[in-house]
């Protein structure tokens, strides 16, 4: 139990997928202009990532094994694409507004390197099934956390007197850098 908790805290804070592993920067920059969109994106990614972690672990362990290891990336991508496709239909039905604001970023969860990265890291770290699920959930929660906080910051930044050359994505990148600086404070917390 403590092990799972450590994995969770570790992936959410210490080794945050965005802030310390620098994965998933595309949606992090792209879907953080509005707080509500960011929350929706976070929820969608959490769903996809947790499911993908578990499924890909099962596939890796029971279908691929050692001899078919070369199919890992391929099959993971297929699984992720399937889950994303499902999520897309689900969101389109339940929240058309969210579907529209997420726009291209929703299908792009497929190519979100964080979503592929976490199942691959699971294999690398030789996580068991539950560990993989927790690792996926933690990574996704960490992603959602920074995405949502970052979106709230950007909403305020939007109205700031940022000098012209730094406006828009530029100052957002700088802010992300400073966020990352702050997250370094968690260094040494686990392991």
């Amino acid at each position: 139990m403590e092990n799972y908790l450590l994995i969770l805290i570790g992936t959410v804070f210490v080794n945050n997928i965005v802030m310390s592993k620098m994965l998933g920067l595309c949606p992090f920059m792209g879907v953080s202009k509005k707080l509500e969109t960011a929350i929706g994106m976070g929820a969608a990614t959490t769903f996809v990532l947790t499911l993908a972690s578990g499924l890909s672990h099962l596939i890796d362990t029971y279908l691929l094994g050692q001899e078919l290891a070369y199919l890992r990336t391929l099959s993971f991508i297929v699984v992720i694409a399937g889950i994303v496709g499902f999520t897309e239909m689900f969101i389109k039905k339940t929240s058309p507004v969210l579907f529209r604001v997420l726009g291209i970023y929703l299908p792009l969860i497929t190519t979100n390197c964080a979503v592929l990265g976490i199942p691959l890291l699971n294999v690398q770290e030789q996580h068991g099934f539950v560990e993989s699920l927790v690792f996926g959930l933690g990574g996704a929660l960490g992603f959602t956390l920074v995405l949502v906080l970052f979106a709230a910051m950007r909403e305020r930044l939007e109205a700031a007197d940022v000098p012209a050359p730094f406006r828009g994505t530029s100052i957002a990148m700088i802010s992300a850098g400073l966020m990352s600086l702050a997250f370094m404070g968690f260094a040494g917390l686990i392991k």
């Binding site: 707080l35 906080l149 709230a152 910051m153 909403e155 600086l181 702050a182 404070g185 917390l189």
Partner: peptide, 23 residues
């Protein structure tokens, strides 16, 4: 943590949360 005094990091981390908290 790895740092003896975490004032700067604690404040910066709290700063990150401020717009969200306010909202």
């Amino acid at each position: 943590g790895a740092y003896p005094d975490g004032v700067a990091f604690a404040i910066l981390l709290a700063n990150i949360c401020v717009p969200f908290i306010d909202a």
